Amino acid sequence: MKMKLRKILSVLPFAAEETAVASSASTEVDSEEFWQKVYDERTAYYEKHIGTFPDDILKMGNMTGVWPGGGLFVMPADKLGKGLWAYTTFGMSNPDMPASTVMEDYKIEVDDQGQTSKYSGSLQNKKQAQSPDGAAGYGYEMIIIAKENAEWPLWFMQWTVNAEILNDAGILERVEEYNGLTVQDIQVGESESINVLIAKANKPLPAGLSLPNGKMDILIATVITDAEMQWSMENGRDVLLTKLSESGAGQISDRNRKSVVK
């Protein structure tokens, strides 16, 4: 996985590095003990409903000091179904979120093999976005569930983090306001892109929980076809999700499946 991730980093405009799981966050927001309690309860929820965590969390270089303890996980989702994989943010609901800093003048250096060798930048204060009422941090964690262990979902996960933390996208609020959110042509490779439907997790998927610092929803990003993208604009994102559920596809992403609409 490490080699594959580094291959991604050579073409993305932002970066990630693979490091050990962090155990604490900035004490300026909450005590280490409280932060760890939130982290542990979220971890237990994932392990009960999704699967076992790997040893390492994938850290985004441009989030160093901006998203302490946060990162991305790729994990077998055996609790959801045989052969499924979950790609998830982990830390959007941390007590120290929303972020109050941003890294500027971010630069990546690569070696002769095109692998990330060093990155640098400077932390600057950022106006802190307002959390949704009663929410833990940004109020959600984002997950893609797929039938393959692949690289492309990590591109989307990094897009999510950058959109929310750097650009205050308010993804959860948009999902709630519009009964789902569709996003078109997100780059997931050197020459690949996907359309996604982002919605709250529907049964039998885990919907989220109440953490010590507030409510955390699970948002699922599901790859949809061009036809489904257009159809959802005319008929509603919630209606498209119903059609996906009725077809048996549900919120599991399969880039090769047939469209559920004409």
Rank of each mutant, 00 (worst) to 15 (best):
Ile194Thr: 03
Leu209Asn: 11
Ala22Arg: 09
Ser191Lys: 14
Ser31Val: 11
Ile218Ala: 00
Arg6Ala: 00
Val239Trp: 00
Ile252Met: 08
Glu192Met: 07
Glu190Thr: 04
Lys258Gln: 13
Leu219Met: 05
Ile8Gln: 10
Asp217Phe: 10
Gln184Phe: 05
Ile224Asn: 07
Lys243Tyr: 09
Leu166Asp: 11
Trp231Phe: 06
Asn195Trp: 10
Ala22Gly: 10
Glu148Asp: 11
Val223Pro: 04
Val239Glu: 10
Ala163Asn: 13
Leu205Trp: 11
Leu205Glu: 02
Trp231Val: 05
Val102Thr: 09
Phe34Met: 08
Gln251Lys: 04
Glu151Leu: 13
Gly236Tyr: 08
Ile220Ser: 04
Val261Thr: 08
Tyr178Pro: 00
Ile108Met: 15
Leu197Gly: 03
Met97Ser: 06
Ala207Gln: 15
Glu151Met: 11
Glu234Arg: 14
Leu84Ser: 04
Leu244Trp: 07
Ser117Asp: 14
Ile50Pro: 03
Trp155Leu: 04
Met92Pro: 02
Thr64Gln: 14
Ile224Thr: 10
Leu58Asn: 09
Ser120Arg: 13
Ala169Thr: 08
Thr27Pro: 07
Ser24Trp: 08
Leu154Glu: 03
Glu164Thr: 11
Val110Pro: 01
Ser131Gln: 15
Val188Arg: 02
Trp231Ala: 04
Gly91Cys: 10
Val161Lys: 02
Ala227Glu: 14
Glu17Val: 00
Arg255Pro: 02
Thr160Gly: 05
Thr64Leu: 14
Asp168Ala: 12
Trp159Ala: 10
Glu17Ala: 11
